[in-house]
Design a protein around this nucleic acid. Structure first.
Lengths: 209, 209, 209, 209
DNA sequence: TATGAATGAGACTTCATTCAT
DNA sequence: AATGAATGAAGTCTCATTCAT
């Protein structure tokens, strides 16, 4: 096996461990997760993890690398850029479609989201900033979309920072709440309906016209 | 000292420990918090805690008791019940005022909210249900308010479950994000502005009329 | 049990652990000694050690505290100060007696000496300086004795720093070599003879007169 | 490449590893030294070491092989044998020159001496005997020299075993102390001066004549 | 023969819990 | 009822050794 192949295998092994770590941190949170459990999930010996990461801490800190900038940017660009501006009904369709796609992505990466949520409170400020650097930058793409539509007279004047954050928060939290807090009393809502309702809420509010 | 006074002192000491636990769990999360740290925060010896709680686990499970039903119900009744229905501008004032008051309450109980957030992912389903029983019931009071206004023709027809949850989520998460994720790049928003923007968003949406 | 008695017991327990540590470090050296072995030697649980010392390292660093300054100073003062100067035969008796007493003390504290020897090479410079601060200061008392006898015309002019160190080194190393390097081929020497020979060597050298 | 050349390369590689091991054991002691560090110092991979030595233990046990018998014997023969006996001043010159040369050799092999010192306490009796077999035999050459000079009436009657050991110990320990225990307070002595003082001490003692 | 990734036993250390005082 | 020293299970991490390449 040549050195190129070796290097490749190292990268693969590293990802294998990192992805196992995400699943375990999602189940347990950082403090409750054990290296032994991560090792078992990754199907390697405990010691092997330390050939790829300095410590459990560093392993945890490497998770944001999985939120690859291109992935996020691509998603948002697809959703919000290069779309021909149209009338309000067209925008509603666009937003609802993006929302549905975002929900789909969230469900696929639920462990990642959960592992972040499980630990966000206990992170020190610096690490937290590192964790949220990319997602927060991504919001600016949404803001640009909103600003564009304001300029074209489709949306009203507003604080785009607040609105972009509000829309993102709503989508993420609805998925999390649905997936996490399932009580016998509360019937789960269909994601289809959630997409449409949230989008309508964003566009038209609740006032009767 | 009579037996009544003794019992009272026991209750007081128990709450003293529980509140200290909330602060520590908020800082560290369940897994990272130590009984020694909770003891120091409560100004008792570590052993004393075990005179009031079976284990660290039980101590943690007792936290929802602090979300007293009356407190939550009172707040929501004050905010959403017994208000004379009025025109849309009146409702805007009402909602903005409720929102501001909710933010105030959240800030006062930030440790409690943080300690719940820190642990929600790692709780088993049963405990999680226990944690969220009261807050979820509280949502029904909001729903009743929305339904009333729909019937009176002030708000449009909508899925009140989704809208009530959305409004609650928005308020809670904006406070948490502000308090937790402070990066040097992002200037903090004034809560005053947030209340107004969120309320306007809820009522009127972002469509230009 | 009052708090005074408690404090006393803490001091006793601390010494119990420290003395066990000396024995184990003497057998194994710092790197090979295990906390578990020290705990067993001290007849406490492994965890208990950490109620008295921050780490294995700090435990090791606390050993010089056992070489109490007074003990060393007292020994040397008894041996070398307040002695009426006399003729060379009187000095020979004095030195031989001191030498014998030093050997006795060394044999009683052999573990301490061995534990220092076992680790001296691997210590960082700062720790090493800390370890040797007291013994090196003690040499100055011997130097004073030599200088006094030079002034009185009993000893010849010489570099007292070198001679004091030489005498101390000889005594310590003869004991260590005897106790450590016992091969079948080499018959052990009597300490009595060593004392006398080393003292004669120091005083008269090996030249035939 | 012929088999002879192959065998030679094996020997060379083995020594390369052994010498690296000496340096690392001198720095860290046996317990703290790691095979990885030795491998890096020897510029080979960790696995390679196991093609030449059974274990870290065996590697350590092979160190005495570096104290080649011829080397030691040659040095001592040059110094102490075949010298024309002369008067006491001539012997002083001879001893001072030997002492200076011994110091030079010690400084050149300081790592070896340190690695032995670092481990002497923790060795089991058998290995220790193996370590010291050659050096102890070397002492007999010195003893022969002393005995010769006694017979010729230049040195006084004495226990040559003790005196030979004393002289060797003094020289070795002065070098080690100088190289190991450097505190800011103590100015280092010139080796020139040490050679002369130790030799004079050996020959004439400290008595004023 | 050389490599270095994988292994897992065993080290240091923490901390929930107990219990004598 | 309160204390806090003692405990030891369990966690993180290291590193000698093996073995497929």
């Amino acid at each position: 096996m040549g050195p190129a192949s070796k290097r490749k295998r190292k990268v693969v092994r590293r990802e294998q461990i990192l992805e196992a770590a995400v699943r375990v941190f999602a189940r347990r949170g950082f403090g409750n997760a054990t290296v032994a459990e991560i090792a078992e999930e990754a199907d390697v010996a405990a010691g092997t993890i330390y050939n790829y990461f300095e410590s459990k801490e560093e392993l945890f800190m490497s998770i944001p690398q999985l939120i690859s900038e291109p992935m996020l940017a691509t998603f948002l660009k697809d959703a919000f850029e290069g779309n021909e501006p149209t009338d309000i009904t067209g925008e509603e369709r666009l937003l609802a479609r993006s929302c549905a796609k975002a929900i789909e992505t969230l469900l696929q990466n639920l462990d990642l989201v959960k592992s972040i949520l499980a630990s966000v409170v206990t992170l020190d400020d610096e690490t937290r900033a590192e964790y949220f650097r990319q997602p927060l930058q991504a919001l600016t793409i949404m803001e640009r979309y909103f600003r564009d539509r304001i300029e074209r007279g489709i949306f009203r004047e507003m604080n785009t920072a607040i609105v972009a954050q509000a829309y993102a928060v709503l989508v993420i939290m609805f998925v999390l709440i649905q997936e996490l807090i399932r009580t016998a009393d509360v019937a789960p809502l269909a994601y289809e309906e959630i997409s449409q309702e949230l989008t309508k809420l964003l566009l038209y509010g609740i006032e009767k016209r």
